[in-house]
Design a protein around this nucleic acid. Sequence first.
DNA 1: GATGAATGAGAATTCATTCAT
DNA 2: AATGAATGAATTCTCATTCAT
Lengths: 209, 209, 209, 209
Amino acid sequence: MTALYVLRGFIISIQKENKHHRILEAAIKVFAEQGFFQSTIAQIAQKAGVADGTIYLYFKNKNDILIQFYDYKTKQVFERFREKVNKADNAVEKLRWLVRQHLTEFQKDPDMAIVYQVETRQNRRLGDQQIKEMSKIYFDMISEMVELGQAEGSIRKNLYMGLVKRFIIGGVDEVINTWIHSNGKYDLVSMADPLVDLFIHGIGSPAKK
Amino acid sequence: MTALYVLRGFIISIQKENKHHRILEAAIKVFAEQGFFQSTIAQIAQKAGVADGTIYLYFKNKNDILIQFYDYKTKQVFERFREKVNKADNAVEKLRWLVRQHLTEFQKDPDMAIVYQVETRQNRRLGDQQIKEMSKIYFDMISEMVELGQAEGSIRKNLYMGLVKRFIIGGVDEVINTWIHSNGKYDLVSMADPLVDLFIHGIGSPAKK
Amino acid sequence: MTALYVLRGFIISIQKENKHHRILEAAIKVFAEQGFFQSTIAQIAQKAGVADGTIYLYFKNKNDILIQFYDYKTKQVFERFREKVNKADNAVEKLRWLVRQHLTEFQKDPDMAIVYQVETRQNRRLGDQQIKEMSKIYFDMISEMVELGQAEGSIRKNLYMGLVKRFIIGGVDEVINTWIHSNGKYDLVSMADPLVDLFIHGIGSPAKK
Amino acid sequence: MTALYVLRGFIISIQKENKHHRILEAAIKVFAEQGFFQSTIAQIAQKAGVADGTIYLYFKNKNDILIQFYDYKTKQVFERFREKVNKADNAVEKLRWLVRQHLTEFQKDPDMAIVYQVETRQNRRLGDQQIKEMSKIYFDMISEMVELGQAEGSIRKNLYMGLVKRFIIGGVDEVINTWIHSNGKYDLVSMADPLVDLFIHGIGSPAKK
DNA sequence: GATGAATGAGAATTCATTCAT
DNA sequence: AATGAATGAATTCTCATTCAT
């Protein structure tokens, strides 16, 4: 009896989990298609196959969906960046894997990519704290990588870390944006290595240096 | 009499121009503060010191304000980039002046910067054509610059132009974004030279090359 | 349990039906009092005892209320004309019953009468198709009647059907209009027989014929 | 000098007359096309070639345009009916000329026809007094005609005058309405004689009488 | 008289959120 | 937990009318 009960609880919690998940996925799709403000709860509910009211059992309000998307989906993706970075054993390789993984994840889930780039990134709706938190993950990875590279001798010394971070994130973001605006027509991941090459060597001629 | 008439016409057209301008400026401020979708016509009207209905004498609808902002303000700024670029006489200097001017203009007018970065750039509300048109200005300047640099020998040959463009725009944008999120606390323009340095040399150690 | 469920569903559907009905009735009253264009959704909502927004759960927009009125109320009335006409067994009786029933129904529901005469009849807002459709019911009844009368010998042969239709509808409509403008002060139905007499015999003196 | 002054005054008053007239004509066109409520002052002004504000120099408000249309155009048309009726020298001819003239005038000026039928006729916006006044012209003509006919022996005695009026006006109106809805595709005037025939003889078979 | 820019009240409509079932 | 009908605040936009020039 107890076992059954526990089992039942488990199934229910799975179902609950499912519904929460389904709404989140539906929301991301709708946000990606129409933008946050132009999306309605009704559209999300329909796409998720639940009633409008049901959404409010899982999310405090419309805004909260974006926040939870951020927490659930994005953070998890960003944590995976770290894994890849950790596996690589020199600074340049770490950077290469960071960029590769970033492009890979975003290519794999274009809806997430759109929502992240367009709705989340630039937005003051999400608590700034949240943005900073995640931004920090990236920042820390880059700092670490740069410091390692400087120790290794592969990365030059006179760098202002804050700027390097923007330099790298900016390039990656812009590559993703362009890809999104092209409606994902080409292979995003193949941009990784040439991009990293630019990060490392710049566009300047080595002869001149 | 005729002279007075002409004068009168002139004054009136100035005033009209003023009102259009005042609304546009007010709108940009409001958009910058609250975001496009959270801004209301009433707020814009109030900030511009006109009645709600007056806005519709100058703009087709709320969206049109954004479009006209783009046409009026942004294009003009971008044309000024070209002037600076044209004055410089080698590739690296051209790039340096492009970035300097970009950061200078955006620092000078933070509201424009915010609206441009947040509302315009990523947005499918503006006709894509418009975005592409302006993006093209940037693209052409970069292409030109890179080709010149390659002829001069200051920029390396094996570059995929599309990627270089994103690499540069991305870095600049991100620097601006970070500055915006800091509420303009520091001097944006001073980022120009270090950033260009990164564009040219990358983060890699020259010793290693 | 199931029975209760079914019952519950039934009650709910009745209530829903009620609300739709209530709004429609309220709208007709308001339209009758003020005319379509001078009526506001707020007035209708208030008279129906619902919130403004509720109206949009049942009607696409203000115009749709008129269209649904037409479909729901008017058609049903017109179908009832046919019943009466079918029961009578000679042409003149059929005409008499058509006119009697028409005046009876409109007298019974003056709001419908007003909206029908003023807003619907002359209006290009309703799909012309709808008007034609209903007009056709009348037309068919008259055609049928006339043809029957001609076969019976009670109605003369040399008649242009299209004109006969306008002749009859016109007279009936005008009698209703006059009654409406008098604010329903007299008995409309009592006009039926004298009017039919005019339709049949005209105003000409039989002696002269 | 005085002569010139008078002349000048005359010209001005002609011009004034013209402008008033032009606005009225423009308004009727616009009302005919779109209906009173869906027409805007701006549309009328544009069609009349004057500024919006100018309309208020000649008309108290939008409603007043309809009222003046009624006074100016319609009354004049109705007076012309009388002329024709007066010329005919027996009752049936009088009726025939009334109907002929009615259809002739309305065919000649379809915009007037539309506005009159749709906007004026059924409407409580015009002072009821005005409607009654004009309606009275018609009524008097019909009364007179019927009484004459009864004296002549061409029209039967047992008639309720109020009903006869509606019977005739109704038929004529409906013929006009149908013509309007057909967009004036056929010759309206040719309906006059057959219609009058129906008024006089009805649809009944003479054999039966 | 003529203009037409400006006004702002007013209306339709939308939609996040609630809550009775 | 789930539903979805109901709500009504909020917003955009229109347009008759006014009035300074």
